[in-house]
Structures are given as structure tokens and as C-alpha cells.
Amino acid sequence: MSTMLTIKDLRAYYGQVQALHGLEFSLNEGSVTTLLGANGAGKTTTLRAICNMIRSTGNIEFEGKPLTGMSTENVVRLGIAHVPQGRGTFTNMTVEENLQLGAISRKDVKNIPDDIERMYAHFPVLKQRHTQQAGTLSGGEQQMLAVARALMLRPRLMLLDEPSFGLAPLIVRDLFGILAKINREDRVTILVVEQNAQLALELAETAYVIETGRIVMSGTAKEIADNEDIRKSYLGY
């Protein structure tokens, strides 16, 4: 298995405040990795730094290519889809337009309709609502839409920021099932940031625990889940 994303000595800043202090980790191609930690530990910041949405220093390499200094849209165009916190839904556009936007940077225009159909197969509820304004969807449906929109890029890597946030437990189960399926069938590498550690550890193979901008623990998901101390002190369940 080859390494897809390597992050070395990543430091990120909000204005004068440093939020990440030399983060290092890597992702294997085809894997599901989770980044765990409490509120404010720097999970979201890490994802934002990968897409160059905030000021950061350090080395991020995607398939051997450094992302330093690249604009967000160009990072995305390399095949890195980012489902942001709050989902980033274009609320005043229809569901279908949201999906088309996901594929807006693709050159192979003629394959897009097929991909939209594929998304409707993954998420039947979106098909029912495809002409509806995205803002009228429920939270769970919007999260499905956000994931589907990200997949429309045909990404090599998908970054998910708290996909379970604000959703009912049943819907979360559903969503994570679909994520696993996408990883298996479409070979999309996934990096998921979660506060719901239990759930994320079921999905992921590898886990990193992050605290105040540093990685404090890493291992297979099973190791982390089985370690009583980590669970109590960092993951809180």
C-alpha cells in the first residue's frame, strides 16, 4: 500500500494565534483514517490547512506533489474533496445544482449525468428531492448532499469534517455505512475528523489522537479503541 498524503511539521495560524504545532502524519492510499480529539484540539484546522484555507507552514505532499502555496481551488482540482463543517451547502440552489457544482472542475462533462445517477443510487432521498432548494433539506439530508457533492469530484481523497455533527444516531449509522461502501467500492481514501470517537473508530483502520495542535497518540483503530486510558483521557467515552 502506498502513501497518499504525507504531512510534516505542519503549523497553522489564526491571525497571531498558533493552532497547530508541528503536526506529522500520513495516509495510505485506499485507507480510512480518523483524527480524534476534543473541541479546539485542531482537527478542523488540520483539514483546512491541507486545502490551504488558512495560513500554515510545513510540508504537505499529495501523491508526491507538494501543496505548498497552491490555492484552495487548485488543491481541490488535484482530487481532494473537502466536506466542511456546517456542510457548505449552497442553500439557495437545487439539490441537482449542488451535485453539478461538485463536478464543476471536471473536464469530462459527458460523464457527469451518469455520476449524478450514481449518487442518487447511493442516496435515494436526494433523488426524491432533486429539484428542491437544498436549504429546505433536513440536516441529515444536507449531510448526504455534502458527501455526494464531494464525490461528484471523483476525488482520490475525501476529507470529512464532523460528518455526524447534529444528526440523529440512526442517520449517522446510515451515513457511516455509506462512507464505508464508498471507500470499498470507489477506492476513495478517507480522512475523517470526529468528536464521536466510537463511531469513527469503527469505520477507520488507523487513528490519530490530537491535542492542542499536536499528535499525542497513533495506532490502528483497534489499538486506540481498546486502550482504556486513551479512551478515558482523550475520547471521553
Binding site: 484555507m53 484552495t72 481541490v76 457548505g88 449552497f90 457544482l101 472542475s105
Partner: peptide, 12 residues
């Protein structure tokens, strides 16, 4: 409507 989300789908 949403510049940040737009950048995240690859729009310049």
C-alpha cells in the same frame, strides 16, 4: 453566494 464552499468544489 458562498465563496468558501465554491473554492472547495474547485471554482476559481
Amino acid at each position: 453566494s458562498l465563496p468558501e464552499s465554491a473554492r472547495l468544489v474547485g471554482i476559481n
